[in-house]
């Protein structure tokens, strides 16, 4: 074996070690959404207040689409952040009430406050499938054209807001202002 050959096992080991080291810190739950840069799936549903709603009702500015349910404990954890965002008028928030019951959803909003412009009622989870949802909570950043730009899986707390959403929204707004 030549000189270079002698270093081959070391190089192989280092290569594998780097790949596996990285693997240790990858979040296997953080799956890429298939809908990034695609328009929001079309829907014609009712809200939790039983008002008819479709794509035309979506805000004409960047907004958050938050998938929630009254059964979902992590949703309760991120709720104060959405309440704060809604009270300060930072960004409109549209809810998707996912695999829930209308009565329970209404009670939950009554108890914890309602940060949503409206919440799309998706009792069957069928709209969730079109969105590629795999469980509440998930939060999407949608632009003013109704195109999905980003998806966050699990709790959106103040840290995630500060480190991920705030810069992403600023960038999106700057892009749209041009």
């Amino acid at each position: 074996m030549g000189r270079a050959g002698a270093f081959l096992p070391v190089a192989l080991f280092l290569g594998l070690a780097i790949v596996m080291w990285r693997g240790l810190y990858l979040d296997s739950k953080e799956l890429p959404s298939m809908l990034i840069d695609k328009p929001m799936p079309s829907f014609a549903k009712v809200t939790v207040d039983e008002l008819p709603v479709d794509n035309a009702a979506l805000p004409n500015e960047p907004f958050l689409l938050n998938v929630w349910g009254s059964y979902c404990l992590p949703c309760l954890v991120e709720h104060p952040t959405f309440m704060r965002l809604s009270e300060s008028g930072t960004i409109p928030i549209v809810g998707v009430n996912y695999r829930d019951q209308r009565e329970l959803a209404l009670n939950w909003l009554e108890d914890n406050g309602n940060p949503y412009a409206f919440s799309i009622l998706d009792e069957s989870g069928r709209f969730g499938i079109d969105l590629g949802v795999y469980g509440a909570p998930e939060t999407y950043l949608v632009d003013s054209e109704g195109v999905i730009r980003y998806r966050h899986v699990s709790v959106l707390d103040e840290t995630v807001w500060r480190e991920v959403f705030e810069p992403a929204i600023a960038e999106l707004r700057a892009e749209e202002a041009q």
Binding site: S124, G125, I129, V133
Partner: peptide, 10 residues
């Protein structure tokens, strides 16, 4: 899981 139930239905 809930989503699995929905997907089976689909």
């Amino acid at each position: 899981g809930g989503v699995a139930e929905d997907l089976r239905r689909e």
